[in-house]
Design a protein around this nucleic acid. Sequence first.
DNA 1: GATAAATCTGATGTATACATCATTAGCCTT
DNA 2: AAGGCTAATGATGTATACATCAGATTTATC
Lengths: 224, 224
Amino acid sequence: MKRSNAQKLKDALEEDIINGRLLPGDKLDHDALAEKYNVSRTPIREAVQQLVVSGLVIVKPKKGTFVAKVGFDQLIEMFEVMAELEGMCGRLAARRIQPSELERLRTALERCEDRDVMSDPDEYYYENEEFHSCIYDASHNGFLASEARQLKQRLKPYRRLQLQARNRVSNSAAEHRRIYDAIASGNELEAERALKEHVLIQGTRFSDFVSQIRKFGHATPATA
Amino acid sequence: MKRSNAQKLKDALEEDIINGRLLPGDKLDHDALAEKYNVSRTPIREAVQQLVVSGLVIVKPKKGTFVAKVGFDQLIEMFEVMAELEGMCGRLAARRIQPSELERLRTALERCEDRDVMSDPDEYYYENEEFHSCIYDASHNGFLASEARQLKQRLKPYRRLQLQARNRVSNSAAEHRRIYDAIASGNELEAERALKEHVLIQGTRFSDFVSQIRKFGHATPATA
DNA sequence: GATAAATCTGATGTATACATCATTAGCCTT
DNA sequence: AAGGCTAATGATGTATACATCAGATTTATC
């Protein structure tokens, strides 16, 4: 299919933000972008507006548009909601998952537990996504899945930097195992609880991380 | 503050959709709107794009843009998520509500139970909103509150038509009482449960209603 | 009468020019 | 030097013209 410049632009900027090439607080100058991508302000404008809606950028009227710098408190709030959505996915998945889906989930689980994968944060990050994505789909609530993915997207710029916490990967993998068992055995409440906690721990880790930064004052966010 | 035409347009269209002046499936012709509101296609375009993101309208490429006709299944999915979000608000509210907020909630509750209010669906609809809005705020999670409001907005075109179900108003008011008691007494789980159910019942009523329509084939949706 | 090519039309995306408004920077007055 | 007025700048919103593309329609041909 044919994608407009505005769409490509939006994706490109989104990528840049998520991958840390654009940092929270950075300015998005329309004219500069127009020149960089050789397009007029129109598609830039549209792309930016979409990003505003998605929450990744904000505009300060008459000041310019900037990569959203989500406040610490709001970040916690967002993790709280993310945990609830993931928990819900888990609960529904435990009830509704199909054999083929369970198979896919098990594969994802095993990849997460692979020694080679666990030793490479980027690799693990990817397999982790797959694991959670399986659960979204297995909830058999497409709307929920899309909301969860959207919120996760919005949190990405902040999540990447806490996978490096000490032991986080091996703990995460262990939690996956418990989540898988609960879903496989149809234990709705346990699946919900385990997933909720799994996400909330991320939030906690994250807030630890932020405290560290504030205390020692370096380690630019989102810089791998 | 100064609002752009595009913003006003967006609000106007949103209103029209929510209040049933524009029905699901109706076409939004850019040129027609441009003429009607005496603006160029540019602000129309922007307004429409925002509505697309919010899910109220969809564009069929090269066919035109239309008021979203949410499928029955997706509607159920949306109610499921709405119930979860409301339940979460209730749970958090039961834990975090402040005296002044509880006061406001009690006032809202009493309004909902007022005989005059209960006899007027529009009136009740309004007070019902206030009641739920109190709970959103009392969750002390601004992000959650805004997500809940947004989803509620998206469901509005479909909710209004099920308040007319037999006894729905008095049942709803009774449920409010139980919700209030749970929150007031700090019973998190009961608050969550009661609110979830309260919303899910709406979904059920709604699906009953749709079945009716399908069987007897009239009663245009969103026609008060 | 059916099918395929040509054309028409409407929808969409983009460029560009312009208008407006707020903030900033600079200048003037006191 | 402080206050405040004014011009300059930059951000934003809008109008308009144009380009393109896909679906719909017509026409031509068999």
